[in-house]
Nucleic acid binder design. Structure first.
Lengths: 319, 319
DNA sequence: TAATTTGTTGCAAAGGTTTGCGAAAATGTT
DNA sequence: AACATTTTCGCAAACCTTTGCAACAAATTA
C-alpha cells in the first residue's frame, strides 16, 4: 500500500537507523490503522527465541507456590515475558515430562522446584547445554555450579529461635517437617544451634510431623503431658494449622496459655485471632528474585550461583 | 542420512498411510536416536495453530483462583495444552493488555474472569471473530450468546439457607459482599427467597462487608448487641475469616455459643477447629469444566451457552 | 502386451518475518 | 563536473515444517 518493500516495513517498525524518519512515521501510522500485529510464530521461527518461561512447581495449590507464581508473573510481565505453568505433583517422571514440554514449546528459560525424590539431574544439564537456562528455586538440588534461588532457611530458623529466647520462654516445643527434607535439616540445625549458643538453659522438645494432623497430635500430647510447654514453634503453615487446632480443642488461649510462632508466607498466620507471629519467607519475593536470576542468564550475564531471599519477623500477638 | 526426502520423514513421523511400514520404522528409530524434536515454531507457523491457552484471572493469589488454575492445568495437560497465566488485578486496561498478549502469543483460546468494572466487551468479540474462542468463567458478563461457565451461586446460597432452616436456627446474621457485585446479588436473592418460602418465622439480619475487617466489625456488633444471633452465614472466605476472628475475640466457642456456615472453596474452613460447615464451590472443578467448554469450541463443536458447576454441602462441626 | 490400479516417494510452494549485502539516490567535497 | 560519502531502501536467502500434486515403480487386470 505504501509502495514499500517488506524489509523496509520490518525495519521501520523496529526503528532501524537505516530508515528515513518520515518513512517510519508513515509505516507506523498505517500499521496502527490496520491493527497490524507481527505473527509471533514467524518471528519466533526466524529469531529462534520465545518470550515464554516454563515454570515447574510440585503443586500449584499450596499457599507458598501460588504467591510465588503471582510475584513471578508480575516481574516477568514487566519484561515482556509470559509464564507457562506446569505442575509435577512431586513425581520425578512428571518433572521430566514437563521439561520436555518446555523444550517442545521452546521456552526461553525454565524455573523449577524439584521434588524431594529427584536425584538424577542429567536431563536438566542437557537442557542447559542445549542453550535453555534452567534456574532452580525453593527446592534446589545439592550441587554446585547451577543457578539457584531459595529461602534463607537457616536465617529464618535463627530469627524464630532468637525471638523465643528474647521473650524469655522457658519450655519450647518445636515441630518440624519430614526429617529427610533438606529444608527441615537446615532449619532444625540453625534452630538448635541458636538455642545452644544463646539459650542453653531453655528446655527444648523437638518433634517431626509429616502432615497437619500429626502435628496436631504432637501438640496435643505435649500440651496434655506432664511437662507442658509455654511456646510452640511450627516450621510451616501446615504444621501451624494442626497445632492451632489442638490448642483450640483444649480451649487454650493464645498467648496467655500458650505462645505460638511459626515460619510462613504470611497468609495463614493472619487468619487467626490473635494473628500469629511469624518469620516471613516471602513467596512473591522469591518469584521476583528468581525471574531476575533467570533474566540475567537469558542476557548472557555471568551466573550468580546461589541467591538467598532474606527473612524477617512479622509480629502478630501470639508470643 | 537415510537417503530420503524431508517430506517422507515428515509423513513417516506422523504415521501417514502413504509411507511404507519399513520406511516409517527406520525413520522413527533414527529420530529417537537423534532425539529429534520438531521445531514447534515452524509447526505453528505452518499450521497456524498453537497448543497454548491464555488464562486471565483478576489475581493469582486468592484461594479460589489458584485451585481453579490447578484444576485447569491438569485437564489441559491431559489434552496436550499448556497454560499461559496472566493476572489483570481487576483493571479493565490490564485485561485488554492481557488479551493483546494472548493474541500476540497466538493462544489457541482464551479463558477469562472479567473484572467487575468491565463493561465494554467489544475487544472480546473481536478476538472471537478473529477465530480465537473466548470462554468466560466465574465472573461472567451479563450477555447472551457467549460461552460461560460459572458457579451455581443461587444453588449454593439456597443450600446454605436450607441447612440453616433444617437445623432450626432462630436468629441468623448473614454477611454478604459488595452490593454491586453480581455474585452478591445472586446469592442474596436466593438466600432471602429460601427463607421467605421455607422459614418465614426465622429472624434474619443482613449485612454487607467489603473486606475481612468490616465483616469482623459487623459480626462483633451483632454479637455484642441486644439481639445476638445464634448463627452467622458468611458469603465468602474473606468474610468468614473476619467473622471467626470476631468470635474468637469474644471467646465464643463454635458451635455452642455461635453456629457458623459459609460458602467456600474448602481450604479456609478446614483450618479451624471445629472445621466450618460450608457449601462447596469447587475451583478445580470449575477449572476442569471450563477447559472442556473451551475444548469443544476449539474442536468447532456447537457452543454450550452457560454451564453451571453444582454446589454441595460439606459438613464440618460448626453448625 | 497394453492399460489400469495401487503403493511409495519427492518436488516445490507456502507460511511471515529478519537481515546481510548490494544498489540506487541524495548529499557533500574537491 | 567528477568523485567520494552518506542515506535510504530492496533483493533474496534463511528459519523448519506441512501438504497438494506429480512421478515413478510395482502389481493387477483386461
Amino acid at each position: 500500500m505504501l509502495q514499500i518493500s517488506i524489509s523496509t516495513v520490518s525495519r521501520a517498525l523496529k526503528d532501524h537507523p537505516d530508515i528515513a524518519v518520515q518513512t517510519k512515521i508513515k509505516v507506523k501510522e498505517l500499521a496502527e490503522l490496520m491493527e497490524y500485529e507481527p505473527n509471533s510464530f514467524a518471528v519466533q521461527l526466524r529469531t529462534n527465541a520465545s518470550k515464554l518461561i516454563g515454570v515447574i512447581v510440585p503443586e500449584i495449590s499450596g499457599h507458598f507456590y501460588h504467591s510465588y507464581i503471582a510475584g513471578l508473573e508480575e516481574e516477568a510481565r514487566s519484561w515482556g515475558y509470559s509464564l507457562m505453568i506446569l505442575q509435577s505433583n512431586n513425581h520425578p517422571e512428571s518433572e521430566l515430562e514437563n521439561l520436555r514440554l518446555c523444550r517442545f514449546n521452546r521456552a526461553a528459560g525454565v524455573l523449577i522446584a524439584i521434588s524431594s525424590q529427584t536425584s538424577d539431574l542429567t536431563a536438566f544439564y542437557r537442557t542447559i547445554d542445549s542453550g535453555t537456562p534452567v534456574v532452580f528455586f525453593d527446592k534446589v538440588p545439592d550441587v554446585k555450579g547451577v543457578p539457584k534461588v531459595c529461602i534463607a532457611d537457616a536465617e529464618a530458623a535463627y530469627l524464630a529461635a532468637d525471638l523465643i529466647i528474647k521473650k524469655h520462654k522457658k519450655n519450647v516445643l518445636a515441630i518440624f517437617g519430614e526429617k529427610s527434607l533438606s529444608i527441615t535439616r537446615k532449619r532444625l540445625k540453625a534452630f538448635l544451634g541458636t538455642f545452644q549458643r544463646n539459650g542453653p538453659e531453655i528446655k527444648l522438645q523437638i518433634a517431626h510431623a509429616v502432615n497437619s494432623d500429626e502435628a496436631g497430635k504432637n501438640a496435643w500430647s505435649a500440651l496434655t503431658g506432664p511437662d507442658k510447654p509455654d511456646t510452640i514453634f511450627s516450621m510451616s503453615d501446615e504444621i501451624l494449622v494442626g497445632v492451632i487446632k489442638a490448642a483450640n480443642k483444649l480451649k487454650l488461649s493464645i498467648p496467655t496459655d500458650i505462645s505460638m510462632i511459626s515460619i510462613s508466607n504470611g497468609m495463614i498466620p493472619s487468619l487467626f485471632e490473635p494473628e500469629i507471629t511469624y518469620i516471613e519467607t516471602s513467596g512473591s519475593l522469591l518469584g521476583k528474585k528468581s525471574f531476575d536470576v533467570l533474566h540475567r542468564c537469558l542476557l548472557g550475564k555471568p551466573p550468580q550461583g546461589e541467591v538467598m531471599i532474606g527473612a524477617r519477623i512479622i509480629e502478630g500477638g501470639s508470643i
